[in-house]
Amino acid sequence: MLAPEQILHACMILSVESDEGLNADLISLIKDALGCDDEDHAAALEHIDEHRDGGKWGGRRDAVLKRSADRANEALANGQLSDSGPVADGLASLLDEADDGEIDPFAELGVQAGAASVGGAADQGADLLAAFMDDDEEEEEMVDSAGFLTETIDLDGAPTSSESDDESEDESDDDDSDSSDSTEEEQESESTHAVSPLAAYEMLMSTCWVDGILDPAEAKLLARKRGELSISFEEHLTLLREMLERES
């Protein structure tokens, strides 16, 4: 269940980013419906002013809008906001705008909404969507539990950590415990398929000569790699000869 101030914040973002701009009347209705006070409203507004970045949201506009729409939809779905009346109508309009131009992931993935399933088409659609959304780790990291951005953007445009990073990291640590086994398996799998030093060096050498000209920087890189990988000059010449013979 989302906190009321989270929902209010999400709705305000959707409203601010709509074509008409912030709809004070609609936000006031939502605020009252959620039981939020002026302080919640002011805090959300202050956060939006601080991070909006002229609508670019530090280059993460799409992610922020998507997360806000998700929160509004969730509030409508679980009854925290009425699914009828002026609030619902206003939100529906905002959500329609937020959906404009979005790519349907199911269509892109070739998943048909009417496909047969044990739980029915609607359930399957919801499950698939949930699975799809679970991949949004990047978005999880950029928006905290309160719906605020977890990173601020410095003057150079480079992200800098905010105080909420620590909290979200702590939470994600717990979540990661389930996935640690699979991560280890993946690492083992990667090490099993590790490329031999000679193969890696040959790959690097062919890359260095991919433009047809060897330059000093490339020769230096290869010389350094020979040292790091303990590849002799004779082995280097053999690999080179084989590579050139294959190409001829």
Partner: peptide
């Protein structure tokens, strides 16, 4: 280029200077 490399190596090899030439190219 690869062509220059092959030409140079062929020439220098026959003179017995292939190895130092290659070492010079590859900064060995």
């Amino acid at each position: 280029s690869k062509e220059r490399w092959l030409f140079s190596c062929a020439w220098m090899d026959q003179l017995g200077l292939g190895t130092p030439f290659m070492e010079g190219v590859w900064l060995e």
